[in-house]
Design a protein around this nucleic acid. Structure first.
Lengths: 218, 218
DNA sequence: CAACTGTCTATACAGTTGTATATTTGTAGT
DNA sequence: ACTACAAATATACAACTGTATAGACAGTTG
């Protein structure tokens, strides 16, 4: 799952290494295991990851220049996996269901998923090296694009116009991610309420965007 | 400025210490100086702060249990100072001005303020100890409350009803803070555009909230 | 003055970190 | 089977961390 974006190198694998070969993915998984649900990537040390992966500290350099490069790879990987989950899940939505609520629910469900990929993306937006922050930003923009497309598509069906759909999509992305991050630090029992609130927020934005568009038409 | 919330202890000051006395504030300022515009609190070490403040490492313990306690104090202090700035600035808005746009502009202006208090609050929401994250959350809720009050007040004037004003206020707070954090990592020249976008997002939320309220009434 | 107070410092220690260097190991090619 | 080579390791080092311990200093009390 998490390996999909990183298989570039292993396809060219020069040696048919022994079964216990060490790739970038081994290290990524080790890092993921260390992170758990609350710890931040920036606190990972090179030695710690190497230890977890069962290799010597220096072997780390064969795969990543430093922990920062690993962090970026982790973000890219998590983002790709998540987007896959989302597009897959959205394909199965039956017509008539509330798309926004459905999406928010899928989103929040991922908070508790075993792989802990979403928390990764939620937590790490604002700290770290600039390269790292750019990686997170990139992933957010992918989501933003998908939401944008979805909005345009739906509104075309309804024959309405959406002014600044781009901005609305941006607002929705950021808002949902922020609320998700908030949810991470709260009790599990509070989450349904948060899902409800977040869905309502999203509806506010969509309706507000429509309303502003109508005004602009007159 | 940043000392307002922390003057508890110094008022009871037991000794008339020599002129170069070391308070919590001295350490807070040292930490602030080290942080600069991009560095995260969590990377501060006890020794580093002590060095910057010009005291021995162990003296740190006289004022804070650990760097985490200092971080919480820093957040509380920054939040209080910022809220003061905002309420002050909002008092001077002339009737007829767009409150939301005005507020967003004030907000974004604080991004470049010398004290760097806002960036502090924007950056540190999602990482760190749970105590620290709660401190940030607390500050966000203060802002949320103020926006809520403002919304209720304005909508009373217009005779409209606001459904879920609370949720709308929450959405606005989180969204503006997130967009602010995004702005921090972008070129200065891009910021006016971001201000525009963010203001529009806020207007979407407000209008969406109104629109949903009207629907609920029928 | 002497004793006591709280504040700050100096020294020290064990642990961890990133990385430079040299060495071993396992596999492929001829 | 022997060499060549890449991958992984072992050892080492200087820097830094948080903190334990003990001592120096100034100000307030008796």
């Amino acid at each position: 799952m998490t390996t999909s974006t990183l298989s570039r190198t292993e396809a060219v694998g020069p040696k048919t290494n022994s079964a216990r070969s060490i790739n970038r993915d081994t290290l990524l998984n080790a890092a993921l295991a260390l992170l758990g649900p609350h710890r931040s990537i920036s606190t990972l040390s090179l030695r710690e990851v190497a230890r977890e992966a069962g290799i010597a500290p220096n072997s780390f350099y064969r795969h990543f220049r430093d922990t920062d490069e690993l962090a970026v790879a982790l973000i890219d990987s998590a983002g790709a996996a998540l987007r896959h989950i989302f597009t897959e899940a959205r394909r199965n939505i039956r017509p008539g269901d509330s798309v926004t609520r459905m999406s928010v629910e899928i989103f929040m469900a991922q908070l508790e998923a075993e792989d802990q990929l979403l928390p990764l993306l939620l937590r790490e937006g604002t700290v770290g090296s600039s390269g790292f922050k750019q990686a997170v930003e990139r992933q957010l923009q992918y989501f933003e694009n998908e939401i944008h497309e979805e909005m345009v598509r739906l509104e075309n069906l309804k024959g309405n116009q959406l002014e600044d759909a781009r901005i609305a999509a941006r607002a929705i992305t950021r808002l949902v991610f922020t609320m998700g991050a908030t949810a991470l630090d709260q009790e599990l029992s509070d989450r349904p309420l948060l899902v409800e609130q977040t869905a309502k927020m999203v509806r506010m934005i969509i309706r507000g965007a429509q309303s502003l568009a109508i005004l602009a038409d007159e």
